[in-house]
Amino acid sequence: MTSPTVSLRSVAVRKPGSLILRSVDLDLAPGSATALFGANGSGKTTLLRVVATLLRPSSGSGVVLGADLGTAAVDGVRRRIGLVGHEPALYPNLTLGENLELAASIALGRPATAEAQDALQQVGLAGAADRRASRSSNGMRRRIEFARLLILAPDLLLLDEAHVGLDPEAWLLVGHLIEEVTGRGGSALIVAHEEERIRPLVDGAVTLGDGVITGHQE
């Protein structure tokens, strides 16, 4: 039996004055895409940050891509995790192309101009590479983040409402990314509100409420 890409057990996250996650158990199977639903403030983003190895759980245990959370082993798997969060991860005064090149060259360990140009082409932004991120539309900034994921080819894809406000063409990109990752045997976890829209892209869904998983759907 193949071990899950992500496996969390009794994960809790406390912040001063509040308990964001109480006890979360979650498994993401290789080759699967899962939607994560939940009301505002239910802890979806916090859970995604735990899975992304960016936030250490206050208690509980977890394994992401074979690395135990809270250990130095997560350093070795971070490059295999692709995250697009609420806020664009872009330097505002760099151009879209420069932002992409920076992320790609750090991740690939060498200058990545050719890869960046190719990815810009794929997301339909070849003509907007010289536009500053701060002067670009939300949709363009999202596409650049998707372009980054195309270059990095992650084994674990995490999207935190990254599809909000996207035009139909960009929406196809989201589907393409999910297919690519799951097709390689990776997993995807997509935080969403619009159940009907996201359903065709995923294999299952979990619902988070009051800091625990309250529902599973296949």
Binding site: L54, G85, E87, L90
Partner: peptide, 9 residues
């Protein structure tokens, strides 16, 4: 978010 991006990169 750029900090997270660089950590993951």
């Amino acid at each position: 978010a750029t900090r997270d991006m660089l950590r993951l990169a």
